[in-house]
């Protein structure tokens, strides 16, 4: 479990920081919740992936943001909430899915009213992702769907890994040089896709900034931009507008990863692995 501070929540890696997956709620196994309220965009997506839409009473405001949510289309039309305690209670949920930060007050209040609350973490590894998926599946009363979802995800990952080609170096580069090192889901995704993440060598800690000098000097074979602004095409250019990046021409390839594929723990992580593994297969010597 990774400790997290308020300062980290300011970074783009925001959602990946939450880190405590509580035990599956102790509600009865028979009665499946039918008024699920989710206050976190990661929980929103898992709920939408695991249960019938009709059982979801509300999702978070960010759930319809296509940059963050893989279920932005599916979430449209479901009432949105802002994780405020009063509005959550007003929705009369029989299950609240949340995280430890944004909806903390709503979670406490719901719990005191006897509504089961399931808190998800961000996940610092693929193993955490499996645990989180399993936990939510059990909380919503669909454990076998969870198991199937994890199996499908693992099958995709295994297929991606089976592609030929040697390991290549890679670095995630977000605005202001923010990157992800050891103990992050991003790092695990890179490793699983056969990439050697350079961030641990270039900066201390799990999240931090890599000085441009070191990006230039280390010349990663694959420079991965976290593309939070898919659709606005000039995004990549503005991150890389420093003239020093010119020197990477011919040495480094660029890949813009849609943020939604790895900002939240969930089966969509498999797609992130596939995309990076394909880049590796293309670039490997």
């Amino acid at each position: 479990m990774k400790a997290s501070g308020a300062s980290e929540s300011a970074q783009p890696s925001f959602f990946r920081v939450f880190a405590s997956s509580r035990e599956p709620s102790s509600q009865g196994q028979q009665k499946k919740p039918t008024r699920i309220v989710s206050t976190n965009v990661c929980a929103d997506q898992l709920a939408l992936a695991l249960v019938e839409r009709s059982r979801i009473a509300s999702v978070s405001r960010l759930s319809t943001e296509p940059q963050i949510s893989n279920y932005a289309e599916a979430a449209k039309g479901i009432p949105v909430n802002n994780a405020r305690a009063e509005e959550i209670v007003e929705l009369k949920p029989d299950l609240v899915l949340g995280d430890i930060y944004t909806g903390a007050h709503a979670n406490r209040l719901s719990q005191s009213l006897g509504v089961p609350v399931h808190v998800i973490g961000a996940g610092a590894s693929l193993d955490d992702v499996r645990k989180i998926v399993r936990g939510v599946a059990e909380a919503v009363g669909e454990p076998e769907r969870g198991v199937a979802m994890i199996a499908a995800m693992d099958a995709r990952i295994a297929r991606a890994q089976s592609q030929p080609g040697a390991e290549i170096t890679a670095l995630v580069y977000e605005p202001n040089g923010v990157s992800s090192g050891n103990g992050t889901l991003t790092h695990d995704v890179l490793k699983t896709a056969g990439l050697k993440n350079l961030a641990p060598e270039l900066m201390p800690g799990s999240y931090g900034t890599v000085p441009l000098e070191l990006v230039i000097a280390s010349a990663p074979r694959l420079l991965i931009l976290d593309d939070a602004y898919t659709g606005t095409s000039s995004r990549a250019q503005s991150i890389l507008r420093h003239p020093a990046f010119r020197s990477l021409e011919g040495k480094s390839a660029l890949y813009a990863m849609p943020s939604r594929l790895w900002i939240c723990p969930g089966p969509w992580i498999a797609e992130a692995v596939e995309k990076l593994a394909a880049e590796r297969a293309r670039l490997a010597p």
């Binding site: 929540s9 300011a10 970074q11 783009p12 925001f14 963050i68 605005p175 202001n176 923010v178 939070a228």
Partner: peptide
């Protein structure tokens, strides 16, 4: 701010 990235850029 529309998303956490905008906030983080402003703070930086």
């Amino acid at each position: 701010a529309p998303n956490p990235w905008a906030v983080s850029e402003i703070i930086y």
